[in-house]
Simulated scan of single mutants.
Amino acid sequence: MTSVFDFKATAIGGTEQSLGQYRGKALLIVNTASKCGFTGQYAGLEALHRDYADKPFEVLGFPCNQFGAQEPGKAAEIASFCSTTYGVDFPMFDKVEVNGPNRHPLYAWLTSEKKGFLGSRDIKWNFTKFLTDREGRVIARYAPQVEPSAIAADIEKLI
């Protein structure tokens, strides 16, 4: 059985990391963008990260430029923006594609595990969120307009 912990991704600093390092933690995986109407959700994501810092939970951000070219920057620019504008301290990864033939393997798996509106696999926009349990199974998928704070009760059930 595949789990979220079976995947690797490039951290925003450029090093490849195994998501296995988060084994035993519930994860909230989010495709992000710096120039989006939902960009303010970085604050809510960081609040979840801080609120549950001492719990088996982590937020993981995956910048994506596939929606309206709203994440045009390079990794260093994205990291700087997130840190200085929203105080982001949760793990961020390098830009990925979440749809199409170059879809990152993690997102191919996430979208096959939890379909979106009307059963679609495709991610519709920035800030789509996936919640996995501590065993690495996808529990829920949330639309971009769902605020991070609205997910807190679901997170608490898993930690």
Rank of each mutant, 00 (worst) to 15 (best):
G13D: 15
G14E: 00
G14C: 02
G14D: 04
G14L: 02
T15A: 15
T15G: 11
E16D: 15
E16M: 03
E16T: 14
E16W: 00
Q17D: 07
S18I: 05
L19F: 09
L19T: 03
L19A: 08
L19H: 02
G20L: 07
G20V: 12
G20N: 14
G20W: 11
Q21S: 13
Q21G: 08
Q21W: 03
Q21Y: 02
Y22W: 15
Y22V: 11
Y22A: 13
Y22M: 12
R23C: 06
G24T: 03
G24S: 12
G24W: 01
G24V: 00
G24Y: 08
K25W: 04
A26F: 10
L27A: 02
L27M: 08
L28F: 00
L28Q: 12
L28P: 07
I29Q: 07
I29A: 08
I29S: 10
I29P: 00
N31H: 08
N31G: 09
N31F: 11
A33V: 04
A33R: 05
S34C: 14
S34G: 15
S34W: 06
K35E: 13
K35A: 12
C36Y: 06
C36L: 01
C36F: 05
C36I: 08
G37T: 08
G37I: 02
G37Y: 02
G37L: 05
F38N: 06
F38T: 05
F38R: 09
T39S: 07
T39V: 01
T39C: 06
Q41C: 05
Y42K: 05
Y42R: 00
Y42A: 03
A43W: 00
G44K: 05
G44H: 00
L45H: 01
E46W: 00
A47Q: 15
A47F: 08
A47C: 03
